[in-house]
């Protein structure tokens, strides 16, 4: 039974392509300022207040790896990518219930578990389109500013972002099965993901609140670590994957019990 997966995947193509286009254009704008950044990185790093550096994780901004890892990825990928997946997750179930599509869908021989799993599985579309679009753009784009990028590092930045995006989607999904209105779920999910990004960034400023950041998905994906230090935090990726599975399980548990 893959009817839901097929139709949901199809429905995600449009938004994935549009968002990839937006990300590609934004990345190219970022890359265009890199030559200036390369020359004046020191001044820029000094100019930023410390909390901004902590928030974005600026390091080695004059290298292309530091620039991408500390500037492009945290901004485009972690914040806006995360928000998109949270939004997509939040729209899954609540929207079908609100527009009465769920009544008709569940009159078919398909279980509620299957509805959730197939809906989540349809996220393969934005995951593939966004990752490929961004990776190809940046790989080609850096050559325009006379730089080169190790394709292995680039692949790892994208590969390790997948568990992070899935957790964002999972947060949205749990809200989606818990609240009555899709708008509430979507705003809540975006707010949660943005807030946890903020908390994680600020928690790194001092040791007193450092522990707060461990409860956020953002702690477990760091593009600068990968690009600048070539360190792949596979353990962190596992933590994110387990969190994602827990969130989906929780969503199923809530959804099968609730009235529609």
């Amino acid at each position: 039974m893959t009817a839901i997966l097929r139709i949901e995947s199809r429905n995600r193509v449009r938004s994935s392509v549009i968002l990839t286009g937006v990300f590609v254009i934004t990345s190219l704008f970022f890359l265009a300022v890199f030559p200036a950044m390369r020359d004046g990185a020191e001044a820029i790093e000094e100019a930023f207040p410390e909390y901004m550096i902590g928030l974005f994780g600026f390091e080695e901004l004059h290298t292309i790896e530091g620039f991408l890892g500390g500037y492009v990825y945290p901004f485009i990928w972690v914040i806006f990518g995360g928000i998109y997946f949270a939004y997509a997750g939040a729209g899954m179930i609540a929207s079908d219930i609100e527009h009465r599509r769920m009544d008709l869908l569940l009159s078919n021989p398909v279980s509620r578990e299957s509805v959730i799993i197939q809906s989540v599985a349809s996220l393969w579309v934005p995951l593939v389109v966004l990752n490929l679009g961004m990776a190809i753009t940046l790989f080609g784009g850096v050559q325009l500013v006379d730089e080169t990028l190790d394709p292995v590092l680039l692949s790892m930045v994208h590969l390790l972002s997948v568990p992070y995006f899935l957790v964002c989607a999972g947060i949205g999904l749990v809200l989606s099965v818990s609240v009555k209105r899709v708008g509430t779920a979507q705003v809540g999910a975006i707010g949660l993901v943005f807030m946890s990004w903020l908390i994680e960034g600020l928690s790194e400023m001092g040791e007193t609140y450092e522990w707060l950041g461990t409860a956020t998905p953002h702690r477990y994906y760091d593009s600068t670590e990968i690009l600048v230090h070539e360190e792949y935090a596979l353990g962190d990726a596992v933590i994110l994957m387990v969190t994602f599975l827990v969130l989906v399980t929780a969503a199923v548990a809530i959804f099968v019990r609730r009235d529609i």
Partner: peptide, 17 residues
């Protein structure tokens, strides 16, 4: 869920995609 293969449903409020 299993018997729904032999069930048809016409809701009052038709929620199509």
């Amino acid at each position: 869920t299993e018997v729904k293969a032999d069930l048809g449903y016409l809701p009052d409020d038709l929620g199509f995609d």
